[in-house]
Amino acid sequence: MLEGKVKWFNSEKGFGFIEVEGQDDVFVHFSAIQGEGFKTLEEGQAVSAEIVEGNRGPQAANVTKEA
């Protein structure tokens, strides 16, 4: 698991990027966000996630919002 913060997230398109210190930004799709209801993230929000290899490079999986 790694910790980072949301760089930006487009709720209409359902994707965005997470900033991780010392690494390239990581793509995040709404389907990777854990929880019930409408899955979205806010800019600057702290999150933790796993990194997996997607079709277009590294992407976030099992994204959870930090308190």
Rank of each mutant, 00 (worst) to 15 (best):
D25N: 08
K65Y: 10
D24K: 14
L2Y: 10
L41D: 03
L41Y: 01
V47M: 02
L41P: 01
V47S: 02
V20E: 01
E3K: 15
K39N: 07
T40G: 05
K65A: 11
F17V: 08
E43L: 13
W8N: 01
K13G: 06
K5V: 11
E36T: 12
E3P: 13
D25C: 12
G37T: 04
E19K: 11
T64M: 13
E21N: 10
P58S: 08
A61T: 10
N10D: 12
K39H: 05
S11G: 09
G22T: 03
E19T: 13
Q45E: 12
F9R: 00
E50P: 02
E66P: 11
E66I: 15
L2M: 11
F17N: 00
F38W: 13
I18G: 00
E12N: 11
E12I: 13
D25M: 07
R56Y: 13
F30P: 07
T40Q: 06
P58D: 05
G37N: 05
K39L: 11
E43W: 12
S11R: 14
E50Y: 11
K39V: 08
A32T: 07
I51N: 04
G16E: 01
Q34A: 12
S11V: 12
Q59C: 08
E21L: 12
R56I: 07
G37A: 05
E21M: 11
F38V: 06
N62E: 05
G16P: 00
L41C: 07
V28D: 07
F9Q: 03
G35I: 07
I33F: 02
I51L: 10
E21Y: 12
E53H: 14
V28F: 13
D25L: 09
T64F: 13
F9W: 15
E21C: 14
D24G: 14
F27Y: 07
V28E: 06
A49P: 02
G14D: 01
G4S: 01
G35E: 09
F38M: 06
E19F: 10
T64V: 15
V6K: 01
I33R: 00
E42Y: 15
K65G: 08
K39W: 06
G37W: 06
G37P: 04
V6R: 00
K39A: 06
K7Y: 02
E42T: 13
F17A: 02
V20Y: 06
I51A: 03
K5R: 12
P58E: 04
F9N: 03
F30M: 08
E50C: 15
E21K: 12
G16C: 06
V63G: 01
G16Y: 03
L2R: 11
F38S: 06
F38N: 05
E43A: 15
E42M: 14
A46W: 15
F30C: 10
M1K: 15
S11K: 15
Q59T: 08
Q45F: 06
H29M: 03
D25V: 07
E3G: 09
V28G: 04
G22H: 05
K39C: 09
F15E: 02
G44T: 04
E53M: 15
G14V: 01
R56W: 15
W8T: 00
M1H: 12
G57E: 01
V6F: 00
L41H: 01
G37K: 03
E66R: 15
G22S: 05
Q59E: 12
F9S: 01
G14E: 01
H29P: 00
S11M: 10
G54I: 04
E36A: 11
Q45M: 11
A49Y: 15
F27A: 00
Q23Y: 15
G44I: 02
F27D: 06
T64H: 13
N55K: 15
E66T: 15
T64W: 13
I51P: 03
G22I: 03
Q59F: 11
P58F: 11
E21D: 12
W8K: 01
H29V: 03
K39E: 04
A49K: 02
M1T: 12
Q45L: 07
V26W: 05
A61V: 13
A32E: 09
V26M: 06
V26N: 00
T64R: 15
S31G: 08
E43Q: 15
L41I: 05
E43F: 12
E3R: 15
F30Q: 08
W8E: 01
G57P: 04
G14S: 02
A32Y: 06
E12A: 14
V28L: 07
G44A: 04
G44H: 06
D25R: 04
E42R: 14
E12M: 12
A46Q: 13
Q23F: 15
N55H: 14
E50A: 11
I18K: 00
K7E: 01
L41T: 00
K65R: 11
N62P: 02
F38Q: 06
W8V: 00
D25W: 09
E12Y: 11
K7H: 05
A46M: 14
H29D: 07
F27M: 01
E3N: 15
E43M: 14
S11Y: 11
R56S: 09
L2C: 10
Q23P: 05
N10A: 06
G16F: 05
V52A: 07
E66H: 15
N55D: 12
V63K: 01
L2H: 10
G54W: 05
G22R: 03
V47Q: 00
V63W: 00
E43P: 15
I33E: 06
V47D: 01
F17K: 04
N10T: 04
G57F: 05
G4N: 00
E3I: 15
R56N: 10
A49I: 15
H29Y: 06
E50R: 13
E36I: 11
G35H: 07
K39T: 05
E12F: 11
N62M: 11
I51H: 03
D24H: 11
E53Y: 14
V52W: 09
E42L: 13
G22Y: 05
I51V: 11
G4C: 07
T40E: 07
F38I: 07
G54V: 05
W8C: 09
Q59S: 07
I18M: 04
E43S: 14
E53A: 13
N62Q: 09
A49M: 15
G54M: 07
S48E: 07
G35N: 07
L41W: 03
F17E: 01
G16K: 00
K5N: 06
V52I: 12
A32H: 07
V20Q: 03
G4P: 01
G35P: 01
E50W: 10
E53W: 15
K7I: 07
V26L: 14
K7S: 03
K65H: 08
I33Y: 01
A60W: 03
W8S: 00
F15A: 01
F9I: 04
G22L: 04
H29G: 03
S11F: 10
F27N: 05
A60D: 02
V28W: 02
D25K: 05
A32G: 10
A61K: 12
G16A: 03
Q34W: 09
T64N: 11
F15Q: 02
M1Q: 11
V63E: 03
L41V: 03
G57Q: 04
I18P: 00
D25T: 06
S31E: 08
I33A: 03
F17C: 08
F27K: 05
E42P: 03
F9C: 07
G54T: 14
D24S: 12
G54F: 06
E19L: 12
F9T: 02
Q45T: 09
